[in-house]
Each structure stands twice: as C-alpha cells, then as structure tokens.
C-alpha cells in the first residue's frame, strides 16, 4: 500500500472531537519518507492534537490514519506496531525520574524490542554521544539542565530506531541558551534523513530544515508550502497576521 503512494504517513479526512468540541476538521496530510515538516499556528489550533493522533495518544473519530502501511484503529497490535515505528519528543521531556539517563534509554529497547542489556546499552551510548551527553549517562534526570534533559529524551526515542520522529514544541519549555543545543541536535538529525514532524515556533529552524511548513488554525490546515514561499509570500490573510505576530518583534 505504501509503495503506491510512497508516503510513510497518510491522514485522510481526519476528524476529532473532544466531547462536543470539534478539534480537528477534515485534516488531509501526506508525509513522504525523509520529509521534514514544520507545523505552526496559534495556540489551541489543534497542532498537538494532530500529531498525537499519529501515534494514537489521542483517538480520532472519523477518517483514516495510515503509518507505514498500518492503519490505525483500536486494534492493540496495530497501535503497538505503529508506536515502535514512531518516536515522540514532548514539550516537558517526560523522562522517567527514577531511572538513570542510561536506563531511560534502554528501558524500551529491552522490554519492547527484547534486546539484550549489553546491546541496548551500546546503542544507548551511541545515541547519547550523538546528542553530546555521553558523560551524563549515569546521572538521574533531576540532575540535568532542561536542554540536557530534552536531548536525553531525543536519544531515548532514537534508541527505538524509529522511522518517524514527532516533536511537540520541544524547545518551548527551555531557556534561550538551551534552545540552541536542542535545535542543533534536531538539525543534525534532519541532515541524516530522518522523517520529522515538528510543532514549533522556531522560524529559523523551519527555514533551515523544513521541506514543508504547515499552518493550522481552528482545527484546519490552512496553508502548506515550502518555507521560502511560506515566509515570503503567504497565501492567506490569517497566515500573514500570524507571521507578523511571531516574527514581528
């Protein structure tokens, strides 16, 4: 199925409600292998909800979500399958505070992928080196700075060897000097060909790595374009207003 479209993620007419509230309205989105997509939009527009539907942290009510040929429904097996392929990085890191950095990274490989401990640790160290904090491996998350914690969270996801990475405002809980160290890691990751969906308001990052920028408001995708056209020549009035607010000051 994936072969015919070449897409790793497909959202077809996805609708979602929180109770009476219509959060996602007819979302259509195709993500190609290796594509980097930046999603932006005002607060409450449904960005988080959309990417959380992709690994079924939220359940959608209408439409289809297909990830790497597996259709998302209530089948626990499919959900497990998809979550193995899709890594996610959260705004507030969500590291496990009772485990060391290394244990945070090896937990899922050992228990989900049934990997021997030695091997899992080797892989974890490899990714900790990639995010430039191998020396913190035996500390607890509480002992690290925010930027370091977020890089551990990225390494933790990478240890599962995902084909897609979702980022939900990975830098918005960080101090300015820490934002850069996290973005650097993400840029490097993008350079290696990882498929990425990233909710962020870091427009510099969008210009640098995005293949496509998606703008959402009121639960809809209003505009999608390559970053060049998106920033220089926005199509809709709403986008313009948003950009002027984000870039304005």
């Amino acid at each position: 199925m994936t072969q015919e479209t070449g897409n790793i993620i497909t959202l077809k007419n996805v609708n979602k409600w929180y109770g009476e509230f219509h959060v996602l309205k007819d979302i259509n989105l195709d993500v190609k292998m290796g594509e980097k997509i930046v999603i932006c939009g005002p607060s409450g527009s449904g960005k988080s909800t959309m990417i959380r539907c992709i690994n079924h942290l939220e359940e959608h009510q209408e439409g289809d979500i297909i990830v790497d040929g597996v259709i998302l429904n209530n089948d626990l097996k499919n959900i497990g399958q998809i979550r193995k392929e899709v890594g996610m990085v959260f705004q507030h890191f969500n590291l496990f505070p009772h485990l060391t950095v290394l244990q945070n990274c090896t937990l899922a490989p050992i228990w989900v992928k049934k990997m021997p401990q030695k091997e899992a640790e080797k892989i974890a160290m490899k990714f900790l080196e990639r995010v430039k904090i191998p020396d913190q491996a035996n500390k607890f998350p509480g002992q690290l700075s925010g930027g370091q914690q977020q890089r551990v969270a990225i390494a933790r996801s990478l240890c599962m060897n995902p084909r897609v990475m979702l980022f939900d405002e990975p830098t918005s809980a960080l101090d300015p000097e820490m934002i850069k160290e996290v973005l650097d890691v993400m840029v490097e990751l993008a350079g290696e060909g990882m498929t990425m969906l990233c909710v962020t308001h870091e427009m510099g990052f969008a210009k640098k790595v995005a293949d496509r920028v998606i703008f959402m408001d009121a639960g809809q995708i209003i505009e999608e374009n390559d970053p060049e056209s998106f920033f220089n020549n926005p199509q809709s009035e709403r986008t313009k207003l948003f950009l002027s607010q984000v870039l304005g000051h």
């Binding site: 219509h22 309205k25 009510q61 408001d217 009121a218 209003i222 009035e237």
Partner: peptide, 22 residues
C-alpha cells in the same frame, strides 16, 4: 489572497456525546 473563514464545526458523532457517548 483569500479571507480565512473557519469551517463550521460539525456536531460530534452520536456515539461521542450525550448520554450514549457518556
């Protein structure tokens, strides 16, 4: 350049709201 008019919200499916949804 087009003016943005949000799509009207549709009511949620009957299985999601009201007594049945609950």
């Amino acid at each position: 350049m087009s003016e943005f008019v949000p799509k009207p919200a549709r009511p949620a499916p009957i299985t999601e709201i009201g007594a049945i949804g609950w």
